[in-house]
């Protein structure tokens, strides 16, 4: 009964979801000359800047593997997380004028943002693969496992997005606080540096960060040509499901109160 409700509800609103996503796409690229090309160019340019700064100025390197691919794989995934969770956070507040007038399931806004950036993320895989081939890293059979990491990343991001959207309704300061949190988070996640550069005492703390494991999962495959360890698989499944379930519970419990905080 419960699940049947969800499915009929979802069917009814899937067209709206699709419209919201296509709206975001149209608006994003409408008035730029290069349009969708920016989605491909932007990660490449970010990578170039960071590579110059970190490998030349700070002399970071990743022994045995290509630093550009290392950087790019982490960047693409982490950028998905920050962009999608930020948009999802503000999506409910931004659509208050709608929610105040018409009944629309509220989860549709964070979900549409995570999917919209998700499609954008798939586009950024093109520059990632360009770098993989251009640096001579090449691909292997384990690449077919990559979607698993992406799905975990999506679930984790959606869960975080739902929690952030809920909190930001009651506490508008969250927009600023989260800006700082993502900045710290970016540096605490081994994106630009290898985790082995950190002292062994601190490493376990860095590994408490689920983002590390999703990125690590992808890097094991892309850079080290191997199937990630069972432990990595487990951490990915559990952390992403846990956060998603938590997000759904938090959002569902509070969504009826949103309307009073317009």
């Amino acid at each position: 009964m419960f699940f049947k409700n969800i499915i009929t509800n979802f069917k009814k609103y899937s067209f709206l979801l699709q419209q919201l996503i296509s709206r975001d796409f149209k608006v994003k690229y409408k008035r730029s000359i290069l349009g969708v090309v920016w989605s491909l160019l932007y990660p490449l340019l970010t990578m170039a800047v960071l590579a110059i700064v970190f490998s030349n100025v700070f002399k970071f390197s990743t022994p045995g593997v290509n630093y550009l691919v290392y950087l790019m794989s982490g960047l693409v995934m982490f950028n998905y997380f920050t962009e999608a969770s930020n948009l999802a956070m503000s999506s409910v507040v931004a659509n208050f004028s709608l929610l105040n007038k018409i009944y629309i399931p509220k989860y549709i806004f964070p979900l549409s943002k995570c999917l919209f950036i998700g499609i954008n993320f798939l586009l950024t895989l093109i520059p990632l693969y360009i770098v993989i081939f251009a640096t001579g890293t090449g691909i292997n059979v384990y690449h077919i496992l990559l979607p698993f990491a992406f799905i975990c990343l999506f679930m984790f991001t959606l869960g975080m997005g739902l929690i952030l959207a809920t909190v930001s309704v009651f506490l508008r300061d969250m927009f600023y606080i989260y800006g700082i949190i993502t900045m710290i988070w970016t540096y605490l996640t081994p994106i630009m540096y290898d985790i082995s550069l950190i002292s062994t005492k601190l490493q376990p703390f860095l590994k408490l960060n689920p983002m590390y494991h999703y990125i690590n999962f992808a890097r094991e495959i892309i850079l080290y040509n191997r199937n990630p360890q069972t432990f990595t698989w487990m951490v990915c499944v559990f952390s992403s499901s846990l956060i998603l379930i938590l997000g759904i519970i938090v959002f569902k419990k509070n969504q009826d109160k949103f309307i009073y905080y317009v």
């Binding site: 709206l16 419209q19 149209k26 004028s97 007038k101 018409i102």
Partner: peptide, 24 residues
């Protein structure tokens, strides 16, 4: 409410679909 969910950056054609979807 009229026009709830209009996006000013979209064309009239696109808004008919978007607004229609918003109205269910």
């Amino acid at each position: 409410e009229l026009g709830a969910g209009f996006d000013m950056d979209l064309t009239a054609r696109e808004n008919i679909y978007l607004n229609g979807a918003v109205l269910g």
